[in-house]
Simulated assay, not measured.
Amino acid sequence: MKLYFSPGSCGLASQIALREAEQKFDLIKVDFSTKKTIEGDYFKVTPKGFVPALKLDDGDVLTEGAVILQWIADKHPEHKLLPSFGSRERYTALEWLNFIASDLHKGLSVMFSPLVDAKSKANFAEINLAERWQYIEKHLADNMYVLDEQFSVADAYLYNVLCWPPRVNIDISGYRSIQKFMANMERRPSVRASLAAEGLLIK
């Protein structure tokens, strides 16, 4: 398998999940500015041009981070990266995956956009994003992970996105439960190995 990524972007979650599932894969770095990789034109891998993309051994390509995470979990159920099909816990996990993808990930994307002025970004962070931090903080106050004490791919995605606020000058250090979650995640070998592979600093 090949995982196409850009350092610090949303491909980190997929990489963590693959390591949790004990899978072998090659990391292929994508240059966002040129849409090129060492293989050439990234649009030939996926016409969307976004990361992550997971190329399977048969040449098939999966895109959309939340879908890749579900695929990894479902292909390797022995690692319990998602609850079993049909269980209430599974739908709770899927709720979180969708919340992270649609509300949190896309919300933070606004803060990276060169098309949005600084004042608008500050207002958006104060009004919209603050509510999301509070929601996550309240949940994590009573849970080690998204699903209480059971790690899942939702945690990989949540950790990935919660790494971004400092990069856009949002201070979430006062959210103690979020900080505890981040510290717990960074003790996992899969997370540390993934950060190292992307050349990111490890605390």
Rank of each mutant, 00 (worst) to 15 (best):
Y159W: 08
N160Y: 02
V146W: 05
W164F: 02
I172P: 00
L158N: 04
A141W: 02
H139F: 08
F181M: 09
Y145N: 07
D171R: 11
L140N: 04
L147N: 14
D142W: 00
P165V: 03
N143P: 03
A183R: 12
Q150K: 13
M144H: 14
S177H: 15
Q179Y: 01
W164G: 02
L162Q: 07
H139P: 09
Y159S: 08
A156V: 01
A183K: 14
L162P: 05
Y175T: 02
Q150D: 10
G174T: 06
D148A: 11
M185Q: 13
P166C: 06
D148C: 04
R167V: 00
V146T: 09
D155T: 08
H139D: 11
D171G: 09
G174L: 07
Q179W: 01
S173R: 14
S152M: 08
L147E: 12
Y157Q: 05
Y157F: 14
G174W: 03
V153W: 06
M144A: 15
D171C: 09
A154C: 12
K180R: 15
I178K: 14
P165A: 07
H139R: 12
M182R: 15
P165R: 10
M182Q: 15
N160P: 00
N160K: 00
I170G: 10
Y157H: 08
C163E: 00
I172W: 09
W164R: 06
H139W: 14
V168K: 00
V161P: 01
W164Q: 03
I170L: 15
N169K: 15
N143H: 14
N184K: 10
Y175P: 01
V161D: 03
L147K: 13
D155S: 11
D142L: 05
S152I: 07
S152N: 09
V153R: 05
Y175S: 07
E149C: 00
D148W: 02
M182E: 11
D142M: 02
H139K: 13
Q179N: 13
N160A: 01
G174F: 01
V153T: 07
V153F: 06
R176N: 14
W164E: 04
V146Y: 04
L162C: 08
L147H: 13
V146P: 01
D155Q: 13
A156E: 03
S173E: 13
S177A: 15
S177K: 11
S173T: 15
D171E: 11
N184F: 07
C163L: 06
A183E: 11
S152C: 14
A141I: 04
Y159T: 04
P166M: 08
D171M: 10
D171T: 03
V168T: 01
V146Q: 05
E149N: 04
Q150S: 12
V161K: 03
S173Q: 14
L147Y: 14
L158Q: 05
I170M: 15
R176F: 11
I172C: 05
E149W: 00
L147I: 13
M185F: 11
H139E: 10
Q150C: 07
E149I: 00
M185G: 09
L158T: 02
E149M: 00
D148R: 11
A141V: 04
D155A: 12
A154H: 10
N184C: 06
Y145G: 06
W164H: 05
L162I: 06
L140P: 01
D148L: 01
M185V: 03
C163S: 00
L162A: 10
Q150A: 12
W164K: 04
A156W: 02
N184Q: 12
A141C: 12
N169Q: 15
M144G: 10
N184G: 05
S177I: 02
V146L: 12
